[in-house]
Design a protein around this nucleic acid. Sequence first.
RNA 1: CGGGGUGUAGCGCAGCUUGGUAGCGCGUCUCGUUCGGGACGAGAAGGUCGGAGGUUCGAAUCCUCUCACCCCGACCA
Length: 624
Amino acid sequence: MTTETHNTNQTTVRGDISRWTQSLIPTTREAPADAETPSHIFLSRAGYIRKVTAGVYAYLPLGYRVLRKVEQIVREEMNATGAGELLLPALMPLELLKPTGRDQDYGDLLITLEDRHGRAQFLGPTHEEVITDTLRAAVSSYKALPLSVYQIQTKYRDEFRPRAGLLRCREFIMKDAYSFHASQQGEAVQDGCIITHGAGGLDETYDRMYQAYVNIFTRCGLDFTVVEAEAGPIGGSASHEFMVNAETGEDTILVCPSTGYAANVEKAEIGERPAPEGGYFCGDPTGDLDTVHTPDCPGIEEVCKLLKVKPANMLKTVVFKANGGQHDGKWILACVRGDQDVNEGKVRDVVGGSVAIGDIAAAKAAGFAIGYVSPAIAAGRDDVVLLVDPDAAVGFDAAKSKPMFWVTGADKPDHHVKHFNWQRDLGGDPEKTATVTSIRNAQAGDPSPRASGVSLEAKRGIEVGHIFKLGDKYSKAMGFEILGKDGERNPVIMGCYGIGVSRTVAACVEQSCDDNGIIWPAPITPYHILVTLIKPDAETIAAADALADQLADSGFDVLIDDRDERPGVKFNDADLIGIPIRLTIGAKALAQNSVELKARTDAGKGSLVPIAEVVERCRTLLDL
RNA sequence: CGGGGUGUAGCGCAGCUUGGUAGCGCGUCUCGUUCGGGACGAGAAGGUCGGAGGUUCGAAUCCUCUCACCCCGACCA
């Protein structure tokens, strides 16, 4: 499926021409004190954005132009999928979230207010409920499906900590799309699973959206990685994240360098980890169990500091409660090495059914000293299932050729034990009590799940897009059912697809800048060409106007720096705002009917180009 | 929300310890000299010192309360 029809057979749209002195481009020499990341610093200094309050920004003319260019690319690609653009309200009644419980689930992230009648309202953080509600009223036959709609709109999330300029805002621009599918001709549910494949099914649209996202981020000139992701609190089954590769990114992703497999840390699978030579749990005790008083140690780190051991020598045990599945109602103990993290999703997969972090009071009543639980407590209890990660199920430290030294909880508050030994302390037969299975987050260096002998590598990224298969979560909760061909009523199957449009702008700067400023990719630059007038007198202004006119006719957006400033100031600002091509008009060049052409990425002054050839040179350079 | 920090001119900061007429750099305005990578000189404008209360003859400075903002953590487009 390709959506690249947008560039062909299209009459060139005339570009825009702006004059610096007539626009609002307030560049500054210094960044605001709170700006730390490159995108925040440069977008502020270059006059693209201004902060209004925490996590809320004004888009000044340059910033708004970039935003609109990204939006336009998004719009074109979304339209190409067949989705219809609409606009839902930002202000909605809180009632709307009651059926799905998200008025509670979203918690403080939701910005709520009361209107003059005392009715509770909220500002939309996302729009599953409204769109489901809207479609429910409008669609009642399978014949109207599948159907996709999208909007580009301001979203509100009262983040605990907005940060890094446009990267994490409380008010931000998002494209959100939703797709609706009839249950597959009455066989929506088969063996308890929703059928999503086949013509008109969720999979088909999901794949099309996936491709549209690839097109969008490619067209924006971004270097990105698509990763498998957990669906998260929004619900549903399969999910992919689109991550812009940037060292400054907040998210860590794991990639297999030989197969291209990529996933976020929560989702990443870990390849086969070879069992220790002597088998799991095998190794002699390193000493007698030694119970140590460890007061005021809320975390692994504090315990390690106090006992002078490494986190890799700790066993960490997290208590879950199974809900459904083969272990329904039992306690699930997930034991991993202290320097690693339990992955709830993997625990759930092993247990079947859902698991939840155990209710602390109930867990304590059941004999678990939360915070000081040892795997040993599982011995002899049939209401407990003990899962041990392979890295923790080790009794002999092969690297050091001696028995493994473990520290773990003492099953009583404020105490830990040294010299824990799997054989001795789990009743002689650990295999009987414990199941060894992969239940931790993947990390760099783990074996790839797709290629043997290859290790996963960690990369940093910024999440700019996320697509989900929602299934019937929302339609079920909100009673959006339709009649199928066979006359049966079934909930509609849904998918949802988001892009952080304003975040994409910032992510691009994070990825594409140097010490002097921004370097825009041609497709989303606010202007393609900056015409710098060394001395803005009548003659050069006339020459600039004529040249700009010609360039605009060829579809280029042109900014003319006609300020009465010294050349050095203009050159520095030119680098700062990051326009891909600078044409410098000075008296000497003009006398030769030429201008100087310099790409933003070039060093030095650039080269002299006859005015007659400028359009062609720019076209080649910008590849438009 | 837990931990740390900051609020003084448009921006960046000093002054606070030890209370006594509010300063510096950048920017802005005027004049002159300049003019190819953030010029120079002379002059000028611009501040309820985040807010409220208190102590004091006197508070940017000390005390109390409050608000805003930033950084680190768990979440997300």
